[in-house]
């Protein structure tokens, strides 16, 4: 009886402290959140640009190896993050082919890894969105005097909600992922004097990697705080995705 009571108290106390950390914007918690948003945000923006270009090329033009590329994209949609992390690590590590760039254990390395993870998803879902636009819409644009470019731009416009959903799916994958960024980012914090106090500040530590390390070290309030922020983020992304889907139906 007392055991379950104290375990509830332990959970409760953890949550209260976590909320406190979030509300008073603890510098450590804030820095971890910032790194997460920066890494995943930049990665997804770069992925989106690449993916829309790739999806357009595949949907609007004919070229050799197109089907192969399509298969490669579909296969890559489910790449295991840890494996991607390993490959990026092997390339970036000091002794690797592009080790001289000195990117290993930097946010840039994490961006590269998440870029590789998000691009196939955004591309694949975007292609589906583009190809779900009825042929009649393409034909209408063409018969109204549109050039190939005019037709393609109009079809992209028609598919915009699907493409936004694709980008959100990519972002969802990026913020949920641990394996790749842990491998190439190293989960590093720096200790800095902030206002005269020695303070942990994230360099390559994100919400997901922070949860693994804090849990292991028994820093439950921190772990819960990161969990709450992560859940809010992914809830927010899903909420937008749902809203977009509703609009596209109506």
């Amino acid at each position: 009886m007392s055991g379950s009571n104290s375990s509830l108290e332990f959970l409760f106390a953890g949550i209260i402290q976590a909320v406190d950390l979030i509300v008073r914007m603890d510098p450590y918690v804030a820095s971890v959140t910032k790194v997460q948003l920066m890494v995943s945000g930049v990665a997804v923006i770069l992925s989106a640009i690449t993916a829309i270009a790739l999806a357009s090329a595949i949907s609007f033009s004919e070229f050799r190896g197109k089907e192969l590329l399509r298969t490669a994209i579909n296969t890559s949609m489910g790449l295991p993050p840890v494996a991607v992390g390993l490959v990026v690590f092997l390339f970036l590590t000091r002794r690797g082919p592009i080790g001289f760039l000195d990117l290993i254990y930097t946010p840039a390395a994490m961006i590269i890894a998440q870029y590789i993870l998000a691009t196939p998803i955004i591309t694949g879902v975007s292609i589906t969105a583009i190809e779900s636009i009825p042929r009649k819409v393409w034909d209408t644009a063409y018969t109204l005097g549109g050039t190939k470019l005019d037709v393609s731009l109009q079809v992209l416009k028609e598919a915009r909600l699907g493409i936004i959903t694709a980008i959100l799916a990519g972002f969802g994958r990026a913020i949920a992922e641990v394996g790749a960024i842990l491998t190439v980012g190293g989960n590093i914090v720096h200790q800095l004097y902030l206002g005269g106090v020695l303070q942990d500040v994230s360099y390559t530590r994100t919400l997901t990697t922070a949860i693994t390390v804090e849990t292991r070290q028994g820093n439950i309030p921190e772990a819960i705080a990161f969990g709450i922020i992560l859940l809010i983020l992914s809830f927010f992304v899903n909420f937008i995705a749902m809203w977009v889907r509703k609009r596209s139906v109506g």
Partner: peptide
């Protein structure tokens, strides 16, 4: 020339932008 395709597919935008489309590409 122009063709009105069966089932009148229109673009997912305002009536104004739909009608202006052919003029704008010209």
């Amino acid at each position: 020339m122009a063709m009105v395709i069966q089932g009148a597919p229109v673009f997912n935008m305002s009536v104004y932008d739909n009608i202006a489309w052919g003029l704008r590409v010209r």
